[in-house]
Each structure stands twice: as C-alpha cells, then as structure tokens.
Design a protein around this nucleic acid. Structure first.
Length: 565
RNA sequence: AGGGCUAUCGCCAAGCGGUAAGGCACAGCACUUUGACUGCUGCAUUCGCAAGUUCGAAUCUUGCUAGCCCUGCCA
C-alpha cells in the first residue's frame, strides 16, 4: 500500500468523525442564511512565541475555513504597543506558515485600522454612548464595584457631546499624560457582568508603535478593537477561548452601536492543556530565564519552534489537534496522545535504520578478519517506496548493551551464552563467550556466525526467537543522541507547594558514544529517522568541534519487553 | 445583587427523548528479520448527585454539588 492510498484511507476514516459544536453552529448559520460564507481568522498579539495551544486555534480556524470553502485571515492584534515587538511578528508568521495555515494575501494588522476605530469612537460619542472620564486608575477600580456589589456612575458620565468631543480630540492630540484620561463606553455600571460597567475603550499611551510609529498616542482596548477588526475583515465566526465568554455582550454591543451590517459572531472553545509539560507563556519564559532549558526552542518545551526542532512534523501536530477534538469542557490531554500522533505520522515516512545507543562490542570469531560485506536492507519494510540500502557488515560490530545478558531472565529472547539470534539484515549468530573487566562490567561478547543463514537467502531450516540490531564498528558513524523525557515529573504535578516548578532532573540525557549506520552521513538538519527499537530521531545540528551529528529523540517506541520481577 | 460556563471510562470525545460511537492509555492473544508495526479480543448495565415528567431520560424540568473564568488604562 502506498502512502497515498494510506492517506486516502485515513481521510475516509476521519469523515466518519462527528461534527464538533463549532461546525454545528456554522452549518446552522449557513442553513438559516445568517451568513453565506465562512471567514475565520487567527489574531495573536505579537508579544511572545506560539505554542501547541495556539496550534489548536490556528488549525481550527484554518481548518474551518477550508472545510466550508471560506477564507482564513492572519491578523496581528497589536493594539498595545507596551507589550509588542516586531521580532515576535516575524517568529509568529514563520510558525504559522510551517504549520501549513495559508492566509494567502490576507495578512493584516489591527493597527492598520486605528483610523476607523478612532472614527468609531467619535460616532459613539456623538450617539451619547461614550464619554471621556477623568477618574484615576484607582478611582475607576473603586467605582467599578466588586463581583457582588454594583458599581456607581462616574461623575464625568454625563458630560455633553461637545465636551466629550473636545476632550477626546485633546487626548488624541497628546494633551494628556498616560493615565490621565480615558474614553469609556456608556453602558451600565450596575450590570452583573463587570465587562459591561462602562468599560474603557481608549487609553493614552505615549509610546512608539512597531507598525504605526508615533502617529497615535491613544490606543484602543481589546474589547473595543477586536469586534471592529473582525467586522472590517468581514469575519463571520470570531473563534476565541472560553475566558472571553463574559466579553461577548460587549463584543455584540460594539458591532451593534457601530451599526455594522452582517456583524461577526464570537464563538468560544476550551483551551488545550497538555499534562506533564509547561504550557503558558509566562512559565516557559521563566524556564528560559532561569536557564533550566536552553532557549524558547528547547526540545522539551511545547512551543511550535521547540516541537519543530524536536522533529515533530506539521502533519503530526494537525493529527494531534484533530485527535483532541473541540469542546467547551476544560480538559488536559495526555502527553501520550501527542506521542501517538508523531509515531503515527513518521512510521511510514521515515527510513528505519540501525543505531546503537549504548554500545558493547560483538566479535564474530569465525568471520574473516578484514572482510566487509554489504548487506541489503529495506529502508522501510512497510513502505517499499522508500527503497533499499546497503549496510556494511564485518567481524567487529557494536550491539546494544541490553541485548546481551550473562544470566537471562525468563522469556528473554536476545543474546546470552549458548543462544542464537538473528542479526537484523545479516546472519544468525550464536553467543560463545564474553569478557568482563576488573569491575565486572562486560566489555565484549563473542559469537560465531552461520554463513548459510544470510538474510534474504531463504534459509528456514531453523528459527530464532530474537532479532537484534547492530552496526559495523569500523564503518559506523559516531553521533550524539539527546534523549528527552517530560520536563515535569509524572506524579508530582507541575508546581510545588512553594510555587517553584517541579522539574524532572532526567528530562534531558545526552549520550555521545552512539553509533549509527553510515547511511546517516548525508543527513541534513531536521531529517528524521526511525532507529530500530530506539524510536524516532531528528538531526538537530552538527557539532563542528567533534564532527558529530547531534540527534534529538522525537519520541521513543512503545517498548513492550519488561523484565520479569 | 454577583454573573458566565462546564460536568459521559485513567485521558480526550460523540450523543440533541428510543435504550452508551470512536481515539489515546492499559491488558491479553496471534503474527513478526524491530519485544516495533499490524490483526483480533477485553475495557461505562451507566452519563456529577437527588427528585420529577414520560411507555421510555445521558438527553426534558426542578433542586443541589463540584470545577473553571470575570473586579488590567493586558489580550
């Protein structure tokens, strides 16, 4: 079966999956003629790097647009220059492109709409729906009331339209310092929904904006700006996370008061949390600053950049997000689900080669000294399209240390004195002897081979229970393997009682003396391979001082051999 | 005079009044030139709890309970 056929199968399988609640909303809107098309967007604030949670939102929005033949916009929600930087604008675009969400020519900046937002504010003032407030930040908080008590009206609430116009102009013209005046929507100070208690819609900030420079010294607040951004772009379904549910009445108020026709509709879904990893920008930042990880793309993190460096593919992340589903229930997905997604994606794409991570020498006593044979091997036994390769075989090999045991437990099928196993793609060998050093550590294993059992020869006079992998000691390439575990300890949870994070000290293990088939020599950065019985690895970089390839373990294989007690 | 939202297996998640889909994880068996993969099998008499309506309720009603979000001039 070719990869295409397999993919087709998978697509047919996913069609059976029932529609999520957002799809149901969209189909209802389409059926009732509320909208005649679907237009979504992903609106990050450029104040940090994207992570797996954002991937869910990106893929959801983009996926919906594709599914309903609609459009998908990329938009930077850059309404607060105090937090935003141009470097994040670039990094975010790169990550979204890599994920495969295509905004075509629709890349927008909220800041490009500042003029229209400003005109909207004037419209509100003239309708008597907005006023300039002189209260200090502290006073505004006091007047707002609490969760259980209503707020009270600002003394400036009933200024005349003329006065408000003058004052708002003065704000715009830089006559006030930061924090001195704000523009507020006039809604209801006694609303049980705090967001409706005359929310601030414009604040003064004398600050250079990465896109508009010094053109403005007043900036719109999210609650006011976002519905306008959506309306200008003719977004139909403005999809965001659950914490904005309480803001929806305000969202609707803005598009209604500004009299947009066919206004967008906000739909909320639950964020994606992953167990045993650090999600959340501020905590990732803390790990980076404290040097626990070596940067925002450290492969133990779940930022998009980290996942990319670790060797995750865009397809695997899409698969994972699809697997998780979309709902309104708070949830925390098992890390195993992510691992499943990447294994599933890579297993037919990657060349499966032999690598020895913890080497011990295997010497074939009856094999001619100096002889090198080239054995044929399928690059991927399940996918013939990947072709075959030649592997050097000789008298001295490396095998995995745990593929030999002096005293084997029950059901151990690998090498032990007197036992015969298959060397994958080569011959049967029988263990004859082994050597220990003065500390009792086994240093080499000896065996004999049977020339008749060569791989591919059709030999079937006898069978062996075990097959082990190997590399030729002389021809093998030495690499550094970086093995990763969850950065947070399974049982203990992310945070300790004192607020510190509970870091797993074994989350990164670096092993330098690993040997891989010479096949790896031509590998380039981000190329990935399946190492037989060791999982999937991805080329991270080349350590030029040692001429080593550095390989990141993407994910380990499910290993089902457990030593009996 | 608080408001909004959520609750179906260890973890996700369908279900929309007709008698509990699916995936991950886990377990067992088979197969195997990767103890992988693959295949097969098993895994919720019960849907947060309690009443009610109904021939029939995870689905409707009422009342509880638990969790999450909201008192930034952040998004």
């Amino acid at each position: 079966m070719s990869i295409e056929e397999i993919k087709k199968d998978e697509e047919q399988a996913t069609e059976v999956i029932s529609k999520n609640f957002i799809e149901q909303i969209i189909e209802k809107d389409l059926a009732e003629g509320v909208y005649d098309t679907v237009h979504t967007r992903f609106p990050p604030e450029p104040n940090g790097y994207l992570h797996i949670g954002h991937a869910k939102s990106i893929l959801l929005n983009y996926g919906l647009a594709c599914k309903y033949n609609g459009k998908f916009n990329m938009r930077f929600d850059d309404t607060n220059p105090t937090k935003e930087k141009i470097e994040f604008v670039d990094a975010i675009q790169k990550d979204i492109e890599w994920l495969g969400a295509d905004w075509e020519d629709r890349l927008f900046f909220a800041s490009d709409y500042f003029q229209e937002m400003y005109e909207g504010a004037i419209k509100l003032i003239q309708k008597g729906k907005a006023y300039v407030c002189d209260l200090s930040p502290e006073e505004i908080r006091e007047y707002r009331g609490t969760l259980t008590e209503p707020g009270k009206d600002s003394p400036y609430r009933n200024r005349s339209v003329e006065e408000n116009m003058e004052l708002f102009e003065a704000m715009k013209d830089g006559k006030f310092a930061d924090g001195e005046r704000v523009l507020r929507a006039k809604i209801d100070m006694s609303s049980p929904n705090i967001n409706m208690r005359d929310p601030i819609i414009y604040r003064v900030a004398h600050m250079t904006h990465h896109n508009t420079g010094d053109a403005w010294c007043i900036y719109p607040m999210y609650d006011y700006a976002h519905p306008i951004e959506d309306a200008i772009e003719h977004i139909t379904h403005s999809i965001c996370t659950l914490e904005f549910e309480d803001h929806r009445p305000l969202y609707d108020w803005v598009v209604r008061e500004l009299e947009y026709s066919h206004p967008p509709k906000q739909v909320e879904f639950a964020k994606l949390y992953l167990r045993n990893v650090v999600t959340g920008k501020r905590y990732i930042k803390k790990l980076v600053e404290e040097g626990v990880v070596d940067g925002w793309d450290d492969p133990r993190l779940v930022s998009i950049a980290a996942l990319r460096r670790r060797g995750f593919t865009p397809d695997s992340i899409r698969k994972f997000v699809e697997l998780c589903g979309v709902s309104k229930a708070d949830s925390s997905v098992d890390y195993g689900m992510l691992e499943f997604a990447i294994r599933e994606d890579l297993k037919l794409k990657d060349t499966r080669i032999m690598a020895v991570l913890d080497p011990i020498k295997l010497i074939i006593d009856n094999y001619p000294e100096g002889q090198v044979e080239y054995m044929d091997a399928d690059n991927n036994v399940e996918n013939a399209e990947l072709g075959t390769r030649k592997i050097p075989f000789s008298k001295e090999l490396y095998i995995e240390r745990d593929d030999f045991m002096e005293v084997p437990p029950k059901k151990y099928f690998r090498l032990f004195p007197g036992n015969e196993v298959r060397l994958m793609n080569a011959y049967f060998v029988t263990c004859t002897d082994f050597v220990k050093d003065e500390n009792g550590v086994i240093t080499e294993v000896h065996c004999t081979y049977d020339p008749e059992t060569k791989s591919g020869s059709g030999f079937n006079a006898r069978k062996v229970k075990g097959t082990i992998h190997w590399v030729s000691a002389k021809e093998a390439v030495k690499v550094t393997a970086r093995l990763y575990e969850n950065i947070i300890d399974e049982e203990k949870g992310v945070y300790n009682e004192d607020g510190t994070m509970n870091i797993n000290p074994n989350s990164l293990i670096v092993t330098e003396d690993c040997y891989v088939e010479p096949y790896i020599k031509d590998a380039k950065a981000y190329d990935s391979f399946q190492f037989v019985r060791q999982g999937f690895f991805c080329v991270d970089c080349k350590d030029t001082t040692k001429d080593h390839l550095v390989m990141n373990r993407v994910v380990s294989l499910k290993s089902s051999y457990k030593l009996p007690k």
